[in-house]
C-alpha cells in the first residue's frame, strides 16, 4: 500500500494541482478543504503525512496541527505564506515537523516528505540502548523512557534525540542537525532545530528552562550531556 498524504488546503485549484503533481510522484493523496474535514479525514483514514496550509477558514492550521499532534506522531508539513513571520515558529511549536512557503515546487514537497518518512522509519542499529541519568533511549524500539515512564516523542523529535545521543557530549551544529535529521543543506532554517530542541526539552527534561540533557553550546550548537 502506498504512502497516504492528507492535503489540507482551502484553495480548490491549488489543491487539485498539487494533488495531481503529488500523485505523479507516486503518493496517494486525500484532500480536505477546511480544518474540520481535515480532522475528520485524519480520524477515518490511515495517514502517513499531513500537509496543512496554515491559512484555513474556520479552525486554522495551527489548531489542526495541535489536534493531530495530540493523537499522532505523524509527520506534518505546513505551508506558510512567508518564511520570515512568526507563523513558522508558531507552526513548529504547534507540532509541525517542517514547513514550505507558497509557492513551492511539488517536487520539493516530495523531497521533504521522503526525508520525513525516511528518517521516521529508520534508526541506526549500531546504537544500542543508552542511559543518561533518568533518561533511557532505546533506538531500535523507538522508545524513550524517563524514570521508567515512556515519553511520547514525534518521529522528528525522536530522531533528533537519537542523533544527539549517537555521540554524547559532542557538539552538533544546527547545520549538521538540519542535514542529518531533515536532509537540508547549508541554508536550512535553523529555527527547525531550535524549536524541535525546545519541544524535546519539554518532554525529556525535568525543568525545560534549565536543561540537563539537551544543552545549548553557545555559538556552536547543541549536545547531549553524557
Amino acid at each position: 500500500m502506498g504512502t497516504r498524504i492528507l492535503a489540507v488546503e482551502d484553495d480548490e485549484r491549488i489543491r487539485t494541482a498539487v494533488k495531481m503533481a503529488l500523485e505523479d510522484e507516486g503518493w496517494i493523496v486525500e484532500e480536505a478543504d477546511n480544518g474540520e474535514d481535515a480532522l475528520d479525514a485524519f480520524g477515518r483514514h490511515p495517514t502517513d503525512v499531513v500537509l496543512i496550509d496554515i491559512m484555513l477558514p474556520g479552525i486554522d492550521g495551527f489548531e489542526v496541527c495541535r489536534s493531530i499532534r495530540r493523537q499522532s506522531d505523524v509527520p506534518i508539513v505546513m505551508v506558510t505564506a512567508r518564511a520570515d513571520t512568526h507563523d513558522v515558529v508558531a507552526g513548529l511549536e504547534a507540532g509541525a515537523d517542517d514547513y514550505l512557503t507558497k509557492p513551492f515546487a511539488p517536487k520539493e514537497l516530495s523531497a521533504r516528505i521522503r526525508a520525513l518518512l525516511r528518517r521516521a522509519r529508520t534508526t541506526d542499529p549500531a546504537i544500542t540502548n543508552l542511559k543518561f541519568g533518568d533518561l533511557e533511549i532505546h533506538p531500535e524500539e523507538g522508545l524513550v523512557l524517563r524514570n521508567g515512564d515512556e515519553v511520547h516523542l514525534t518521529k522528528t523529535e525522536f530522531r533528533l534525540l537519537v542523533e544527539l545521543a549517537s555521540a554524547p557530549g559532542r557538539v552538533f551544529s544546527r547545520e549538521v542537525l538540519l542535514e542529518r535529521v531533515w536532509g537540508y543543506g547549508y541554508f536550512g532554517d535553523g529555527r527547525l532545530v531550535d524549536v524541535h530542541v525546545r519541544r524535546l526539552r519539554t518532554k525529556v527534561e525535568v525543568d525545560p528552562a534549565n536543561p540537563r540533557h539537551v544543552v545549548t553550546v553557545r555559538g556552536l550548537g547543541y549536545k547531549l550531556q553524557p
Binding site: 484553495d11 491549488i14 495531481m20 513551492f104 515546487a105 511539488p106
Partner: peptide, 10 residues
C-alpha cells in the same frame, strides 16, 4: 502561481 507551478509540473 502555486497552481501554475504545480500544474506545470504535472
Amino acid at each position: 502561481l502555486m497552481t501554475l507551478a504545480a500544474s506545470l509540473e504535472v
